[in-house]
Design a protein around this nucleic acid. Structure first.
Length: 496
RNA sequence: GGGCCCGUAGCUCAGCCCGGUAGAGCAGGCGGCUCUUAACCGCAAGAUCAGGGGUUCGAAUCCCCUCGGGCCCGCCA
């Protein structure tokens, strides 16, 4: 790898060009370029013209120079902007002495603006016959190989801007991500949910089991943690009288990173008073149906996106957590087994779990091993064992279970929802029941949250969605780093 | 945490097995070319071979360590 701070000979040549431009009174970094149209609009004006014949009127376009093909007294330049690209056609005949100067000063990667007449070349390429060309920003670093692009996976992450400027496909990926987040917001808004922005910095990160990042407030002189979930503050809002709330934002878990885990990730949670998890199941089915329809409409060239509406066609499959697990294991009476027995089964299935883990951990492992891999289509997994889920309400008719569903698809968890526990006494008991176990397997005790429930929280349902994973599935991307703009990487050492 | 793989010019790659002192295309420089689109033709230039150590007369190549990255497994939700 090169040191980005060193000046290569190529950069030295480009810096010398900048000096020459300034020496002749030119400005390599002008202030603005008013009145331009997109390359798409310029293309539209050229459309339908007879190849080889000139069009009428002029257009003004601007963008990045992708490639230059010189032919002596004429030259073709591919110009790219956010809307696409168009070919510039430069001729010595038209430009006089400015022709040679433009070729001497412009390199691939530069940002330029041009005025000219829309035309179609004899070979049929929509073009702008340039009457004037202006440098808008000189690039000092040369862009990646124009044909092969930027391949180095490390550089694509560390210098995302290079990948983006080089690759319209990567820009499309992030456009897709943005639009999915926008559609999620629109969906909840249209369903009457209010978006909330709760605290990122909290005294104790709760609502999930995960190692938090820690930091410190100088003013308060207290240690703080970065939130690991949105659950507890949003439920406090239900106590406070809001009936439909959601939050879409970053959460942080101080754990390993791999293709489906990022230390910072985008989480959606929504809480809905006077409704239960069956209502939420319907809402989530509707949400994914709309997201699938959106990506299929907007990104038909992506195979995963065009397949999404069929994949997410309602109604989604449903299986009972315990029944599905018992069927796959060929056993019965799972919930009556002792902790030791379940632990042995989990280890026999290949899970590495400490012997004294809570029962819920073993059951989760067994489910992950036996059932989840088979859930290729979106499937609601219903009614988990109580031991796996301390924040959900006990099932109204199935003993030893809670009212919960997880939506699985292709081993990715796409939603996790409960009928929420709102009994403060039981909530406190469940928190305390975990206190004896290992810290890394227990939900943090949040006394203020119990206090809030004591004021009365209406019956409610809530859902959490790992938005990055939903985006991955809908856009057909295999690593979370592909759909987060600036994923975490280890800082590079200054000297090797 | 364990295993496998990768790091050579600004970019994309070859060379590594079988050690003999680094090669191509693009980009850049110079020259030629008025319809190309990976434009083309000619000339010249461009490389701490990720870093450090070892073996050897000689290391990009073999060995060890370190750094960074990727994939798989484990852990984690």
């Amino acid at each position: 790898m090169s040191n980005p701070e060193e000046t290569s000979r190529l950069e030295a040549e480009r810096l010398a060009k900048i000096e020459r431009i300034r020496a002749r009174g030119g400005e390599p970094y002008p202030w603005t370029f008013p009145g331009r149209v997109s390359t798409a609009e310029a293309r539209a004006k050229a459309a339908g013209l007879t190849p080889g014949a000139g069009g009428e009127g002029t257009v003004r376009v601007a963008g990045r120079v992708r490639s230059i093909r010189e032919h002596g007294k004429s030259c073709f330049v591919d110009l790219e902007d956010a809307a696409g690209s168009i070919q510039l056609f430069l001729r010595g005949e038209e430009l006089g002495e400015r022709y040679a100067r433009a070729l001497a000063e412009i390199d691939p990667g530069d940002i330029v603006g041009a005025d000219g007449v829309p035309t179609v070349t004899r070979r049929g390429e929509p073009s702008v016959m340039v009457s004037s060309l202006e440098l808008l920003a000189k690039a000092i670093h040369p862009p990646p190989d124009k044909y092969h692009g930027l391949k180095d996976p490390e550089a694509r992450l560390r210098q995302r801007y290079v990948e983006l400027l080089d690759s319209p496909e990567s820009r499309l990926r992030f456009q897709g991500r943005y639009e999915l987040l926008r559609e999620i917001r629109r969906f909840f808004d249209s369903e009457g949910f209010m978006e909330a922005e709760t605290a990122v910095l909290v005294p104790v990160a709760g609502g999930a089991v995960a190692a938090p990042f820690t930091t410190h407030s100088r003013y308060l002189d207290v240690d703080l943690q970065l939130r690991i979930s949105l659950e507890l503050p949003l439920k406090r809002l239900l106590v406070g009288g809001f009936e439909r709330v959601f939050e879409l934002g970053q959460a942080f878990r101080n754990e390993d990173l791999d293709t489906i885990h990022s230390p910072e990730f985008t989480l959606l949670e929504a809480y809905w008073a006077y409704a239960d998890y069956h209502d939420m199941r319907g809402l989530i089915e509707k949400l994914y149906g709309q997201l699938a329809a959106h990506v299929a409409r907007r990104f038909p060239e992506l195979p995963a996106a065009s397949a999404a509406p069929e994949l997410f066609r309602a109604p989604f499959a449903q299986v009972d957590f315990v029944e599905a697990l018992e069927a796959k294991m060929g056993t019965t009476g799972l919930l009556e087994r002792s902790r030791e027995e379940l632990g042995a089964l989990a280890r026999a299935a290949g899970a590495t779990v400490p012997e004294d883990s809570p029962v819920g951990v073993f059951l989760d492992k067994l489910f992950d091993r036996y059932v989840a891999p088979g859930l290729v289509r979106p499937t609601f997994v219903m009614d988990h064992p109580l031991a796996t889920t301390p924040l959900a309400k006990r099932h109204r008719s199935k003993p030893g279970r809670v009212e919960r569903f997880e939506l699985f698809c292709g081993e990715l968890e796409l939603a996790n929802a409960y009928t929420e526990l709102n009994d403060p006494v039981e909530q406190e008991r469940r928190f305390r029941a975990q206190a004896g176990g290992r810290a890394e397997e227990a939900y943090a005790f949040d006394a203020d949250f119990v206090e809030a429930l004591r004021y009365g929280m209406p019956p409610a349902t809530g859902v959490g969605i790992g938005v990055d994973r939903a985006v991955m599935l809908l856009l057909g991307v295999s690593s979370i780093k592909e759909i987060r703009l600036f994923p975490q990487t280890r800082p590079r050492a200054d000297t090797g």
